[in-house]
Write a protein that binds this DNA or RNA. Structure first.
Length: 533
RNA sequence: GCCCUCGUAGCUCAGUGGAUAGAGCACCUCUCUCCUAAAGAGGAUGCGUAGGUUCGAUUCCUACCGAGGGCGCCA
């Protein structure tokens, strides 16, 4: 790869001018073309500690580099306060094209960051007491995209959904169904959503309301998640922890570790030993466990199933819970880094110009399946993946419906459709692609062609960063940029038609490489790549 | 009061410590006898405030201002 060869050349040059090369040679792509194709700040970064002046050092480096330029390098230049900029020949991009084609959709930008590490990703995990509301789509889209990114970067991923199927909420849910069916008074804090009426009407008279409702909710959840293309490997029942004795065993483990004490008739976990700001009750004075104990037992179970890393994706409303769960897991002897909790800001839904409250227990509910029904799975998913999980996402349901044809997903899909259109035209004209080695890629010198290749060359780095930052939206941004480059190319550079046959051949391969790029990018996001629109 | 996230263009948002901060939408112009005009080209405005670290800060740190969320022997 070009980046490695430039770094190697810079190391050698540094050594030659008497400076110990740093462990990391920083190379970046300047935002402005006149600053070269690649740029390094090594001169500025190392000058001070070596008693040199940045610009002078850069000058020395440039002289060394230009004396015997690395592959593809036209020349090195000094710029600004001491950047070393590399102007490359177009051949480096032709190499990128060949690399993309050789690796193909299966292997281009496939990285081995994870080294086969087994990762359990738990997400959504909405209570099985009703359908999934539209805001929950954010966790579904994010979680699944993150899983796809982890898979592409060498992790073995397990998708898991945790069902809180025991305790107060389930009882309340069952009682609400029963009351609605019998026409009696709702329990205090009962579930009053519209779906309760519908489900109560469906429920057989002899059914156990809680048990029936649980199954009903579970299949509802499964269906609406499948509707956005998300499927889980495991639906884990909290009740099963109680049934198997795992909760008691976890308590015994914690006792054995000496991190438990009793006070005021309750059992406490000394989470302050692990960075929490106060200790937490795990068994109430009435003998019932708090929410925390089964949760620790659940994570204990996940570790026991052999995962190297657990990732939980939670809404920011659970922020206060992070330190106590992490403490609980550490109390069992796991390293802090073995449990990663990703917090995301909640989605705000706007309907008729007003914020819709997202509560199953309150009246109005906007369902994920309704959102998907009105805009489609692709628009829904990409919309959720447009921005960082750290920012609050506002979705105006009237706007997203009315303007779904302005959604960026169509911009990207249209580019992909145009690729297929070119393929169809080529087939009609009886043009077939010659084998790559027989094609002269050096004919690709148009700025639009080169821009497209530059963007493609970024994909491996984008995937690596998206993985490291747990940030699928970086892939979204890249795919949109790729679409931008492709539309520009499509507009200015005809593939079929009034162009020399050799150029048609080179461009057909360029188009193929773009298709590989879209294929990878959209697959990572879980968005479909239609052949026609 | 304490903790977390955010504050970038009129709006919605990108922006791995780099050079002149970018997209989309909206607004105004152009461009289809030729691979899909769901496209392309051109046009204005911006890093909440004040300090600090750094050769260099939208990015890191501190304080303040503003928005959202969280601080139970609830789940």
């Amino acid at each position: 790869m070009i980046r490695d060869s430039l770094a190697t050349a810079l190391r050698a040059a540094l050594t030659e001018v008497g400076i110990e090369p740093p462990a990391e040679i920083h190379l970046e792509r300047p935002s402005r073309r006149e600053h070269g194709d690649w740029s390094s700040n090594v001169a500025m970064a190392t000058a001070k500690n070596n008693g040199r002046i940045p610009r002078d050092l850069a000058g020395e480096l440039v002289a060394v580099l230009n004396a015997s330029p690395p592959a593809h390098v036209e020349r090195a230049e000094i710029a600004g306060p001491g950047f070393v900029n590399f102007q490359l020949r177009e051949t480096w991009l032709h190499d990128v094209l060949a690399e993309v084609i050789d690796a193909g959709e299966a292997n281009y930008a496939r990285l081995d960051i994870g080294g086969g590490k087994a990762v359990n990703v738990e997400f959504v995990s909405a209570n099985p007491t009703g359908p999934l509301h539209a805001g929950g789509g954010r966790w579904a889209a994010f979680g699944d995209a993150l899983c796809r990114i982890l898979e592409r970067t060498g992790h073995v991923v397990h998708r898991e959904y945790y069902l809180n199927d025991r305790g107060v909420q389930m009882g309340l849910f069952g009682a609400s169904l029963a009351a609605r069916q019998a026409g009696t008074d709702m329990p205090e804090n009962g579930y009053v959503g519209e779906y309760i009426k519908e489900w109560a009407a469906e429920m057989p008279a002899d059914a156990d309301p809680a048990a029936w409702g649980y199954e009903r909710a579970k299949s509802e959840l499964r269906e609406s998640l499948a509707g956005v293309g998300v499927e889980f490997d495991t639906w884990f029942s909290e009740q099963s922890l109680a049934d198997s004795g795992a909760i008691d065993a976890t308590l015994a483990d914690l006792r054995a570790k000496g991190v438990v004490f009793e006070e005021d008739g309750a059992v406490w976990l000394r989470t302050t030993d692990f960075g929490d700001d106060k200790d937490r009750v795990i068994v109430k004075s009435d003998g019932e466990p708090t929410y925390l104990l089964p949760d620790i037992a659940y994570h204990r179970d996940k570790f026991a199933r052999g995962f190297d890393l657990l990732i939980d994706i939670w809404g920011a409303d659970h922020h206060g819970y992070v330190s106590r769960l992490k403490a609980g897991v550490q109390a069992l002897g796991h390293a802090p880094a073995d449990l990663e909790i990703i917090l995301g800001q909640l989605v705000v839904l706007i309907k008729n110009g007003e914020e819709v409250r997202l509560s199953k227990r309150a009246g109005e509910l906007v369902l994920l399946e309704d959102l998907v029904a009105s805009v489609g799975a692709d628009v829904a998913r990409l919309t959720f993946l447009l921005q960082s999980l750290d920012t609050r996402q506002t979705i105006d349901l009237d706007l997203i419906t009315a303007q779904s044809n302005e959604n960026p997903v169509f911009y990207v899909q249209y580019a992909n459709a145009r690729i297929h259109s070119i393929g169809r035209k080529a087939a009609e004209a009886g043009i077939t692609r010659a084998p790559l080695p027989e094609v002269d890629l050096t004919l690709l010198v148009h700025e639009r062609e080169l821009d497209l290749l530059r963007k493609l060359s970024e994909l491996p780095e984008v995937v690596a960063i998206a993985c490291a930052d747990r940030a699928p939206h970086k892939v979204t941004t890249w795919v949109r940029e790729l679409a931008d480059r492709f539309h520009g190319f499509y507009h200015d550079c005809y593939v079929i038609g009034d162009v020399p046959p050799e150029l048609t051949q080179a461009r057909l391969w360029l188009v193929e490489s773009a298709q590989i790029g879209f294929g990878i990018g959209l697959d990572l996001l879980g968005v479909s790549a239609p052949e026609a629109m």
